[in-house]
Nucleic acid binder design. Sequence first.
DNA 1: GGCTTGCATTGATGTCTGTCGATACAAGGT
DNA 2: ACCTTGTATCGACAGACATCAATGCAAGCC
Lengths: 126, 126
Amino acid sequence: MSKQELVVIGQSDETGACCPGLAFAPLEEDQAAELARLFKALGDPVRLRLLSMIASRAGGEVCVCDLTPAFDLSQPTISHHLKLLRQASLIDCERRGTWVYYWALPATLDRLAAFLTTSQTAEATA
Amino acid sequence: MSKQELVVIGQSDETGACCPGLAFAPLEEDQAAELARLFKALGDPVRLRLLSMIASRAGGEVCVCDLTPAFDLSQPTISHHLKLLRQASLIDCERRGTWVYYWALPATLDRLAAFLTTSQTAEATA
DNA sequence: GGCTTGCATTGATGTCTGTCGATACAAGGT
DNA sequence: ACCTTGTATCGACAGACATCAATGCAAGCC
C-alpha cells in the first residue's frame, strides 16, 4: 500500500449512485440519456487515451503541453476532445500562468464502474 | 522504454483483464481502440435501456417480443441496436422456435467496470 | 507597446450513426 | 402448399461527430 493520496475532489453529484446498477433494474429514460452521454464521451480511442494519460499521472495533473504531442492530431482536435471529457465531468482543468493543467474526477469514473458491475456490492446502500 | 512492445492483445474475453485500469497506466493505441468500441456500444440511451432490461431480467433471458414494444421505435431499429450490443459481446442470443431470446454477458460488463475503477482492487493480478 | 507561445473557439467538410420503410428469412399453423 | 407472425437485413436519408486550418484570447517576455 502506497500512500495513495486520494484526493476526493469536490465532486458534483453528491451520492453519485444515480441508479441501482445495470443488472438490477431497467433504466428510466432520463437516467439512460444521462448515462449514455457519459459513455459516449468514453467511446472514442483518443479520449480514452487522453483520460488514461491524465488519470494515471503520478502528480494527479497533466499539462496540455504534455498531452498534445503524444497524438498525431492537430492541437484544436485535442482541445476539442478535452472539452468533451470536461463536459462529461470526467476531468477538470485550471489555468496556471501560461499553461493549463488537467486532472481526472474519480467520482464520475467510479459511478460508471458501479453502474456496470454485475455482482452485488455492499456500497449499494443508497 | 525499450521493451515496450509486448502487446498481449491475444485475450479478448475470459479473464477480461486486458489492461491495468484507466487510472494506473496510459492506454496503448490498440487497447484504446478496442475499449472505445465497447464504450461506444454503451453510448446510446436506447442501447443502455435494452441492456439493462436484458441484464436485470430475472430468468436471465428476454424475448425480443418483450423488448420491442417498450420503445417508441420501429422494430428494425431495435433489431439494429441489439446487433450492435451483440457485436460488442455485451449480449448474446439464440433462436428457439419462433422467438429469439437475448441474455447479458457479464464478463464484458465486469471487464469495463474494472477498467473504470480508480481504486486499487485485489483482482489486478495481471 | 509589440512579439511570442500555449490553448480555446470558429467554420467548414467528410464520415459515421440512428432511424425508417421495404423486404427477406425462419418457423409454425392451416 | 399457403398464409401469418416474429425477427433480421437492406437502402436511403437526416443529423451528429471527428478533424482540420484559420483565428481569437490570455499570459509572459523583449
